[in-house]
Design a protein around this nucleic acid. Structure first.
Lengths: 214, 214
DNA sequence: CCTTTAATTAACTAGTTAGTTGATTATAAA
DNA sequence: TTTATAATCAACTAACTAGTTAATTAAAGG
């Protein structure tokens, strides 16, 4: 089944818009992203954006839904490979880290959204974000019930993991630049790759959770 | 010395602009903040903004410099009260937390800036941000040298602390809202106040650093 | 081949944006 | 009191904003 060369392909046009919108929103933020620019990037008339997504907010909603769904599915698939909280937690962190690194728009968009306290986000996204947290929370709660984790506050630990990984990804260019001018002695970890960072974080989170308070 | 009522006071006007700009940028982001709106908020003609700050970027620079300087001084002052790395680390986290809570524009602006990877940020700010990290890094390095901290990567731990605290502050409204609709069982920590969170984080960070890897 | 429908476009609107200009005040120094 | 200067403002520009409209073209079904 050879794909026939069509001049019109609704599905493809829609995807082109979404794909470019992800890049644009994550680079410039919601307010900074121009629909004129997006149309040019996507090689389509601007009216098409509104034809497919009604308005800018609708497009943003679609973009956020898309990426949250993607990361959720990746993590859920990984999660099914394990059957104990410790391995599940490791898997969560590792999968999130490598996904975030492979798709750096995720951290950028997530941090922008969260730093706004959901200024743009509508109800539906709200639900998507909670699904991911619910999964994380469940892992920790089960671990606690089994006596392998102690003193657990899932919400805080969730942001510890997301905060660390997201910031390490988004600040990468900044940190590399800092390492180059290199006037003072601080190590900005410019060379670390994300898997090392994930390993380190996992090691540390284990110490956090497996030890009783001293 | 009674303050004479003047119709013109450059210092006061400048401050009014900066003060309102902090609120506006942290609420709407760089692109979303309108200079027309800022002028109205500040009860001044828009031209005054450009008279004092040259352009929007210059204003943003001044705003960021202001708040980074403020938090740096608060933390430095606290730091001088202690003389061992463990207490210094505790002080750092606690001071950052309570400052961030009292001035929630700080987390909002910092997360926005960092999620942009310095899209707007100029060289001068870059330096300001590093000063804070250098202080944190130094505490950890000394602790490691004294054998009370182990397996230290300051950059990662820095973002662990900042990520956790900033996200807990900025998401507060979102979490409260989530707790209200409360359809599923997840605990969003809506009631926790920032000092409890800081205590929890300190406890956990200590476990991270004081234990050898098992 | 004709008709219907879905996809696409050019051209437009009405409002907003950052930034400018030149005149006009208030204040303090001479 | 005059003069110089610093602070303020109204009115403007040119570019850009999200979103609309009505006409046009391509494809698919009968």
């Amino acid at each position: 089944m050879t794909k026939k060369v069509q001049k019109r392909d609704a599905e493809a046009s829609r995807r082109r818009i979404i794909e470019n919108a992800i890049a644009l929103f994550s680079k410039k933020g919601y307010a900074g992203a121009s629909m004129d620019e997006l149309a040019k990037m996507s090689d389509l008339n601007k009216a098409m954006i509104f034809y497919y997504f009604k308005n800018k907010k609708g497009l943003y909603e679609a973009v956020m839904h898309e990426i949250l769904q993607e990361i959720y599915e990746a993590i859920l698939a990984e999660n099914k490979l394990h059957d104990n909280p410790l391995e599940e937690l490791e898997g969560f962190i590792r999968t999130y880290a490598s996904f975030a690194c492979a798709h750096p728009y995720l951290p950028a968009l997530l941090l922008k959204e969260l730093s706004d306290s959901g200024a743009v986000i509508p109800e539906t996204l709200f639900a998507s974000m909670r699904k991911l947290f619910a999964l994380f929370s469940d892992i920790l709660r089960r671990g606690e019930a089994q006596g392998i984790f102690h003193d657990v506050i899932p919400m805080v630990l969730y942001f510890t993991v997301l905060g660390t990984l997201n910031l390490m990804v988004t600040t990468k260019p900044l940190r590399v630049k800092a390492a180059q001018l290199d006037d003072i002695e601080v190590d900005t970890c410019a060379e670390c790759d994300i898997d090392e960072i994930a390993d380190y974080l996992i090691r540390k989170i284990k110490l956090m959770l497996q030890q009783e308070e001293r």
